[in-house]
Nucleic acid binder design. Sequence first.
DNA 1: GCCGTTTTCGGCCCGACTGTTTTCAGTCG
Length: 607
Amino acid sequence: MQPANDEIAQLFENLGALLEMKGDSVFKIRAYRRAAETIRQLTFPLAQAVHDGRKLTGIPGIGKAISDKIHELVTTGKVQTYERTRAELPAGALDLLAIPGIGPKTAMLIGAELGISSVEGVEQAAADGRLAALPRMGQRAADSILRHIRATRSMGGRTPIGDALPAAEAVIAALRERGPETALLTPAGSLRRWEETIGDVDLVAVTPNPEELGRALTALPQVRETLVNGPRKTSVILSLDRPSKAQDDSAPGLQIDLRTGEPGAIGAMLQYFTGSQQHNIRLRDFANRMGLSLNEYGITGIESGQMETFADEAAFYARLGLPWIPPELRAGMWELEAAQQGRLPQLVEARHLRGDLHIHSDWSDGSDPIETMIEAAAALGYEYMALTDHSQGLGVANGLTPERLAAQKQVLGELQQRFGLRILAGSEVDIRADGRMDFPDEVLAGLDVVVASVHNAMSQDSPTMTRRIIRAMEHPSVTIIGHLSTRLLGQRPPTDFDLETVLQAALETGTALEINASPARLDLRDTHAYRAREMGIPLVINTDSHHHSELPGGRFGVAVARRAWCEPRHILNTLPLSEFLRFIQTPKPGRLRIFQAAGAAPSGGNV
DNA sequence: GCCGTTTTCGGCCCGACTGTTTTCAGTCG
C-alpha cells in the first residue's frame, strides 16, 4: 500500500512539531511545515511520481533533503530521521499539541514534569491543580487550557462551507440591519478562499464606529458566547444549525472573528486576513526582496521606514508589481509565479453557466414537479437543462423503470413547447457493482444526457472500483460521471480508486466529469478537478438539485472550479446550446475534439 | 531545510495577545 499524499504531509507536519519540541532551528521546522502544506495541495500522487522517476525538487518548498525523505518513505515505508526523533521524545506528546493554547514548549513541559501524554490527562491535571503548579504556568493559564479543551470538544472540528457560508451571510445581513453604518463588511480567511471546510469565519469591516459594530455582533440572538470584545477585534461563538450533523448530540458551534480597519488602509487588512498563511509568507518573502515589508496595515520601505496604505487589495498587489490575485488561487502554490508572468487564469464565474445537467424531480427522489424545476432553470437564464431522475436500481430513491422513463420523455416533449430553454431527456443511471449500467443499452441510447453514478457497493477495493468506473466510462451512451468519489463532507469518506488511471480513461473515452456543486458533496474536489483540467478532460458544474430552491446553488461548484484554476473554456456547460448539442451528438471519443476546439486543450502539468 | 534579477552562503513574515513577568516567552493566525 503506497502512502497517500495526506499521509506523507502528516509525517512532515509531525516531524516539524517534534523538532520544535526539541528546540531545533525554527527555519528547518518552517521548511517541513511548508513542505507538508504543499504536499497536501498537490494534484497528483507523490508515491506514483517517485515510481515514475519524476523529479520532486521543482515543487515549491521541496529541496534535496525532503525529496530524499519522500523517496525513503515510498521505497522503505519509513523515514529514519522521523523514527529516531520520535523515539527521543515522550510518547503522546504530539497529541497534546492538538489542544489550542498548548504549543511545543508546554507539551514538553507537561510530558517531562507530569508524565502526561494524553488530552484526558491534561484535563485532569488542569482540574486538580498540578498544571497550575508548573513553572511559568499559573491558575489563569491552567483555567484557559481547560476552557480550550472543553470548547474544542463541543465545537466538533471544521465546519463544511455549505454550513459556514449561510451562517456568515446571516450574521452579515443582521449586522447591516442592526449595527452602525458600514462601508465594507465582508468575509475574509478560508471562507473567502472558498475552502471546502472552514475553521473560524473571519469578517473584515470598515465603519466609523467599530465598538458599536462589535457590540452589535455580541448581541445577535445566535451568539452563544463572547470570547473577545476589544476595540478592533471581536470574537464570538455562534450556535450552528447544522442539519448535516443532526445525529451528533453535541451542539456544534462556529467561531466568528470580526476585525475593523480604517477606510484608506483596508486593502492591506483584507489581504492579510484572507491569507492563506502560505500565500502571505511567500508574498512577504517576495516583498522583502524588493526592499519592502508587509503587515496588515500597509507596506513599509525597509530602508525608509515609510509606510504606505491602500484603499483596496488591487492597489496593495499593484504596489508589489502584481495583478490582483483572486482569493481562490491564494494557496501558496504556483499563483505568485503565474501573477508575475501575467499567466493568471480568467476564472469561470456563475454567470458563464448556460445549463444544468443533473436535476431531479418528484418522479424519483426530488420534491418538486418537473415543471417547477424547469421554471427555476429558465429563471436563471439557462439555455438548456437535463432532467436526470434516478434509474430503477435505486429503489429507495423511487428510481424510474424503462417504462416510466419513456413516459417521462413524452412529458418532456410536451413541456418543451411551453419553455424557451432546451429540455434534454436524461437519467442519473446507477453504475452497478460490476460496472454495468442500470438500464439496457437501447434505453440509454434514446437519452440526450446520461449521468452515470456510483450509489452502492462503495467499500470496494481500489482495483475493483477503478475497473468499475472505467467500464462505465467506456459505455458509448455515458455522457458524464456524476460525483466521482461519492463522499459526503464530514459524513462519508470518498471511495478508493486510482485517480490517475480513472482520469486517463475519462480522457481516452471522451467522458465528462461532474463537479457536483451540492455543498454536502463538492465532488470532484478541488485538487482532482485541477488535475482533470490540466489533462483536458471536459468538466461539468452540476447542482444535483432535488428542489427548485437548489438550482441557483451552483456557486459552490463554481468555487471548486475556480480553485482548480478553471476558465470558462474548461467547463462544458458554459458552451452555447448549439455547441453543446454538437458535443453530445458526436460519438465518443471524437466529441472531445468539439470541446477542445472551444479552447480547452490540455495545458500540461506544473511538474 | 529551502532558496537565489544582490547571493551556492546567509538570509529566512509579522504582529497581537496572554500570562507571567520587571523585559519576555509562548502561542496563534
